[in-house]
């Protein structure tokens, strides 16, 4: 008999792929192989993975219908089974799978709606971080404010869509009859974050989204503002910065080249 590791490998392969036959050493009380018994494990694995995707993507499920969702989720589960025992994280590849899934190509916004749902789950489980208080800026000389680099809240996610994905997400979130879709109403940028107790989802203008995206990747305030101004001349830095501070999404700030050393400035150190 092959070693146990090899037999477990064959068992695992047969669970995920029905083209593999069940391991012959799995028997019933009379000592005979019984496919229906092995099928219980197959069903358990498939339905538990489908249920995990159902829990993570309730809006997509509502949009495509329960039966269709289970079928697509089942295909995804076989193609991309979990790699970690932490099932909270399962389903990261599902938005991309949906976006590329040929039979759903007439619903091209589904991938973006799924990305919003994924961002929501990630924000829900993300690490905690204390928002930076506006008083912390008192120690920064006015002429250096533009050189600040921010640490943004670890829960923050941006989802950009050429479709009104956020409107679709909102309309289908609750158990009410969804409003008709107007796919030509333009693209949307969604900001998803959990700066306080609960996940918050909101629409941001394209320049505001770019500003956040640049700050998130480590650009200074001046660099991020310049990028936002390049796409929108009316970009109002003061207003966007105030809104960002108020939202609690800034959790740290520092001047890159001259690291803060004084006790007062240390309070601004990156968390």
């Amino acid at each position: 008999m092959p070693p146990l590791a090899e037999r477990q490998g064959a068992f695992a392969a047969a669970l995920l792929d029905p083209r593999w036959s069940m391991p012959p050493e799995c028997i019933d009380p009379s000592g005979r192989p019984d496919m229906r018994r092995f099928a219980v494990y197959r069903n358990n694995v498939a339905s538990s993975l489908i249920e995990a995707l159902e829990a993570a993507y309730p809006v997509v499920r509502r949009l495509v219908g329960e039966e269709y969702f289970r079928a697509v989720a089942g295909l995804h589960a076989l193609a991309d089974p979990p790699r970690s025992p932490i099932m909270l994280h399962y389903g990261k590849g599902f938005p991309e799978f949906l976006a590329r899934f040929e039979p759903l190509s007439s619903h091209p916004y589904l991938g973006d709606v799924a990305r919003i749902e994924r961002a929501w789950i990630e924000a829900y489980h993300a690490a905690e971080a204390e928002p930076l208080q506006p008083e912390a800026f008192a120690s920064i000389p006015a002429h250096r404010v533009a050189d600040l680099h921010f640490t943004l809240h670890p829960s923050m996610r941006l989802v950009r869509s050429v479709f009104p994905a956020l409107t679709i997400w909102h309309a289908n979130r609750l158990e009410q009859s969804p409003s008709p879709l107007d796919l030509d109403s333009g693209g949307q940028e969604a900001l998803i974050a959990r700066p306080a107790a609960e996940v918050e989802v909101r629409l941001v203008p394209p320049d505001g989204a770019l500003f956040l995206q640049r700050l998130a990747r480590g650009d200074s305030l001046a660099e991020a503002a310049a990028a936002a101004t390049a796409v929108s001349e009316s970009f109002d830095l003061t207003q966007h910065l105030a809104a960002l501070l108020e939202s609690g999404l800034i959790t740290g700030a520092r001047l890159r080249r001259r690291r803060p050393t004084s006790a007062r400035k240390r309070s601004l150190a990156c968390r």
Partner: peptide, 13 residues
Amino acid sequence: WSSHGATFLNDLL
């Protein structure tokens, strides 16, 4: 057991 190789099977086997 519930893991084999890199795959987590999410069932108690």
